[in-house]
Amino acid sequence: MKARVTVTLKTGILDPQGKAIEGALKSLGVDGVASVRQGKVFDIELAGADKAKAEAALKEAADKLLANTVIENYAIELKA
């Protein structure tokens, strides 16, 4: 089973990297960019086919390591 965990900064947390990317896009002349927030994507392959178990493992992974929940949110997406 495959899964994707997306980690994003919580709203209100200053994101200097996103700001720099936003500035770079503007200087490249990419039109219509209002703002950029950057984050991380983890593509994870899971052993076994139990969906509930996979979700529990991914939640544990995100809480324990992948995200720092002081400043970040995460979303788990299971793929068939």
Partner: peptide, 16 residues
């Protein structure tokens, strides 16, 4: 901070 022994987090320097 990451281990939970201190609160908060160290973010990228504001000036990058």
């Amino acid at each position: 901070c990451e281990s939970g022994l201190l609160p908060g987090v160290l973010m990228r320097n504001a000036g990058l």
